[in-house]
Design a protein around this nucleic acid. Structure first.
Lengths: 196, 196
DNA sequence: CGCCAGGTTGAAGCGCTTCAACGTCTGTGG
DNA sequence: CCACAGACGTTGAAGCGCTTCAACCTGGCG
């Protein structure tokens, strides 16, 4: 694993190098081709992944056959880097989500059994896994706030502000459905805003 | 605390009577008058509460001065009974949320210091608090799914199915903003559906 | 080169919002 | 005890923004 990525992880996870090594040796490196799936709906999600390079999307297929982006993943902040269906992972239930590589990507995966082994190993790692759950919760809560309190245009501006280069990494149609709007609407919103 | 409520908690929290007693003795009973606030925006949230009787709402005031319901609370499932700004609670940051009694209510509160003391007491309670975090996460995730995947009308039908008697407990205007729509729209949706 | 996926643009339509008026119920003070 | 105020819900009318369907453009790739 590249040194830069390790350093970034140590900072984001707030653990020192020794502990980070203990954590990372449970991970398995994997390269994904563009459009490759790492989770298909109907499967139980048995891993948590981290994006080192490239980009992935987590999406759901609704009754009309439309694909709706639940999350977009790339090497950015902790909330973006991680990918899993945490609900399926925790409850051992079949997932309704798909996770697919948008581009050729480099990822690291930890298996559920290893994650649970680590969480039960000692009280430090139990605290650690609790803290990870808290982080995941807070990002979900913020997503709810976005969807409830702001309209599509505000959500777009917010996304752009937090993440100026997302359009270089993720095709616009996936961003549109992440924002909860159609690709055409996103196109028009962008046009409208670029004029002003 | 009433026996029925205790039994319900034991079942929902999946702990036996002895452990439940240990847990509940950290809680403090409180009655809230109708319209009384238990959290004001700008304060740090230092408690987790459970509704025994009555109803509360957690809401946010947006820049237009509109109040938007983030969550509604009453004695139902675990996700509904609990109220707190968990983000503010965890990060010790000022809350943007308000929590207010909709009707005269009976609640039980655990202080942050006691919750943390319990979580650090032994590994059982650490596991327990981790599991609580997971439950809270899953309910936030489902809320995102609702908002992203379904339109207002579907959300209304889903809410009604999961919670047939919510309209007896919570004024319609609060339900409307929980669904992310105006009170007028909810009124029209209900009319439209009752006709068919 | 030609195809295909992704993005843009136009036109029509629908559903939600907003503003406003009205109905209904409840609680309070004269 | 009645009258009125205030809160809540309903209904109407107008408007706006997003959706949908469709056509077209562009760039990348076989």
């Amino acid at each position: 694993m590249e040194e830069i990525f390790k350093q970034k992880l140590a900072r984001l996870l707030r653990i020192d190098d020794v502990l980070l090594e203990e954590f990372l040796k449970l991970f398995q490196y994997k390269e994904l081709e563009k459009a490759e799936f790492i989770l298909n709906q109907g499967e139980v999600c048995e891993f948590i992944g981290l994006v080192s390079e490239g980009a992935l999307r987590t999406f759901y297929v609704n009754e009309n056959g439309d694909e709706v982006s639940f999350l977009l993943h790339f090497n950015n902040e902790l909330e973006d880097m991680g990918f899993t269906d945490f609900e399926s992972f925790l409850l051992a239930e079949k997932s309704k989500l798909n996770i697919q590589a948008i581009a050729h990507s480099k990822v690291y995966l930890i298996k559920k059994t290893d994650w649970e082994w680590l969480s039960n190993k000692d009280i430090f790692w139990l605290h650690f896994s609790k803290r990870m759950t808290e982080i995941v919760y807070i990002s979900a809560k913020r997503r709810v706030e976005d969807l409830l309190y702001y309209g599509p245009e505000s959500r777009y501006l917010k996304l752009l502000k937090d993440n100026p280069n997302i359009f270089q990494k993720i095709p616009q149609k996936y961003i549109a459905s992440y924002l909860g709007i159609s690709p055409q609407s996103l196109s028009r919103i962008r046009k409208r805003i670029s004029i002003n």
